[in-house]
């Protein structure tokens, strides 16, 4: 048989393509459910990690829901929305993960130098102080931009505040190191990773901005609770005075 005849080549390529396509699609389909479970698990672990609560059981500890642009709860399948977070933000559906102790985790998403970057930022129940941040990326340069995914970089965010008084200021990555004057709202940028650092600054500001009404609502409620407590304690005092 002539192996260089056109017929042979065409038959050979057709058979090869069909076999390869079959092999790949069977593998992809049969492994899909396991892969999705892994991805979901990774998200849940990242959420717990941002709260420094990796030892807790996600399903018991976290309530997931979504809010709209006015900060009101809306019906939504949170993890389906998380599949395309950027699209979800544009739609006006903002996922929130609330821990039992009142701390909340908000997902953030943006662009680095080479591709998307994303993460989870956990805020204390005052909706102002960051208690933990987890970032990840798809293709930032190892040793430079990819440093945002390291524990060393992420640890810097703990204790930073996203509000100055009542004004939203977000947290910025500053080239040359966080300045003393603005220490509560700045962290050190990554040397050699300026574009990625800018990407993280933008990601934080843009993503938090979506949640401002929600944060404001929670802050107002917290302030009211505090005021109510003061009143209650005043009443108790009055009674005891009588």
């Amino acid at each position: 048989m002539n192996k260089n005849s056109n017929t042979y080549i065409i038959v050979y390529s057709v058979v090869m393509v069909v076999v390869v396509a079959l092999l790949l699609s069977v593998t992809a389909l049969s492994l899909q459910s396991r892969q999705n479970a892994n991805k979901l698990n990774e998200k849940k672990n990242a959420i717990l990690a941002s709260l420094s609560a990796s030892d807790k059981n996600y399903d018991e500890y976290i309530t997931a829901y979504a809010v709209n642009a006015d900060g009101e709860k809306v019906e939504a399948d949170v993890f389906a929305q998380m599949e395309d977070l950027k699209g979800s933000f544009e739609e006006g559906i903002f996922p929130v993960f609330e821990a039992q102790d009142g701390r909340v985790v908000v997902p953030v998403t943006g662009s680095g130098l080479w591709g998307p970057i994303w993460g989870y930022v956990a805020l204390d129940s005052d909706m102002n102080t960051i208690v933990g941040a987890i970032f990840d990326h798809s293709g930032e340069t190892p040793g430079l931009g990819a440093e945002i995914a390291t524990a060393k970089h992420q640890a810097q965010y703990v204790g930073k505040q996203i509000f100055e008084g009542d004004e939203f200021v977000s947290v910025k990555l500053r080239k040359g190191g966080a300045s003393q004057a603005n220490f509560a709202h700045e962290v050190d940028a990554i040397s050699g990773g300026t574009k990625t650092s800018d990407g993280v600054s933008n990601m934080l500001a843009d993503s938090f901005r979506n949640y401002l009404p929600f944060f404001a609502g929670r802050r107002a409620a917290a302030a009211q609770d505090a005021a109510a407590e003061v009143e209650v304690s005043n009443e108790v005092n009055n009674e005891s005075n009588e």
């Binding site: 790949l24 593998t27 992809a28 492994l31 396991r34 892969q35 892994n38 991805k39 990774e42």
Partner: peptide, 16 residues
């Protein structure tokens, strides 16, 4: 390419 993608798929499912 098939080999690499196959391996990557299997890794994604079992050692994420």
């Amino acid at each position: 390419a098939t080999l690499v993608i196959l391996v990557d798929q299997v890794l994604k499912a079992f050692v994420y």
